[in-house]
Design a protein around this nucleic acid. Sequence first.
DNA 1: TGAAATGTTGGGGCG
DNA 2: ACGCCCCAACATTTC
Length: 484
Amino acid sequence: MTLELGTYSKGMSRVKRALCWIRRDLRTSDHAALHYACEHAEEVQVVFIFDSNILASLPKDDRRVTFIHKSLQQVDEVLREHDAALWVRHGDPMVLIPELVEEFAADLVVTARDYEPYARSRDIAVKKALGDRFRTVQDTVIHEPGVVLSQSGTPFRVFTPFSRAWKKLTDVRREAPMLTPDLSKLLKLDPRRVPTWSLTNLGFSETELWLEPGQNGAIARLNEFQPKIREYEEARNFPSKPGTSGMSVHLRFGTVSVREMVRRAYEVGDEGEKWLNELIWREFYQDLLWNNPHVVKGTFQPQFDKLEWPGKPEHFEAWCQGQTGYPIVDAAMRCLNATGWMHNRLRMIVASFLTKDLLIDWKLGESYFAEKLLDFELASNNGGWQWAASTGADAQPYFRIFNPALQSERFDADGEFIREWIPELKDLPAKYIHAPATASSFDLSAAEVSLGENYPRPIVDHGAQKEKAIALLASAAKREHKSA
DNA sequence: TGAAATGTTGGGGCG
DNA sequence: ACGCCCCAACATTTC
């Protein structure tokens, strides 16, 4: 059994009652599922389920759970302005959704399509239980996976041609319409009779967030960023400057619609293209995963699966803790650990370092990011790591080996970002901060840096490791050549 | 959305 | 005045 794919407005006769099941569309405006439900039913109830299949594997202080919880509170506030309220449950959706259908006597359940493997199997199970009463609608992407194709009708493996085809396919009025739900359709509830929910009931504790959650936070941040879209291309590579949109977490949980983001990019026109490309990268990786589901378990090019990465466990530990002796890498990892976010330039640097300098399997890095990143998306994370590891569509390793000191000089020239996250190094002059081991003992002691004591010596030598990485990847590529 | 090696050019110092 | 060298800046090639 498969789920139907299609456009936003699909004809269906009206029904009495619909449940709108929100998952990663935690907002009330420009909302495909809620819009569809309000169009097709006389009474609509919005429900969210904390999925026990997902929550079970998360630490009890996971920041994403706090973000979801606070975003749901904002959804609930809007619903209450219409004398309605959000229902929140905890458990297995494959059990709970059919139960809720009974409880609410729903004729219809509407939800936004989710293309990740677990979500697909979950939705297929729900569809099996509910049949035609279960409808999924497109919401989280402009072009669904599998839709953007080359002239010969095949999926893309490379970003640039994909992005060209994506843009060609995009008529912004049609592909990014504003879907405003008619909230007068919401079921009126006596607020005293709506069960309350809390993080503690779920067994989770509230954590500090560095960004304002929910749709209020999303719109505020987007409004702040929009005037800077033109400067994005110049500013986006410098981690100490706020040159990126910072919207990834909001996009992940749908506290803003991707259509709203794309409309803003198109408003800017040609100068908004560089930022638009980042939104297309997101869809490119979803498309790549959809067409090549094996990448979840292994490398895009299977010959690299046989590769044995010789890196050491203690080096992985040092990488995780930000103790490699390479300041830009360590600052980035400490930032990730402390906030759940990392600048994209830094993601590339630390990923290159893990795979090409420490010679550690990218899958370890991938799962560490999956655990820590608030904006974690399977497709983007997997695609990014395979790109960094050179196991993706273009295997030439030469293009994907970063020199950490050089990257640091280029993108954190005065060491501002490093100083923020590695206070031990804050008094080192800029010319030494990218590679403290090159400083004289006089300069080191003047800055109160004692290598091996309050800051580690480099745990590997970049020059030597780079050569090993090239040899390692070349041997795996050659193996394929022989067997082919 | 590299890095390093190699090649080219042009200005200035200097014999 | 001239040629030579040095070297920085930039471009091209190679891995």
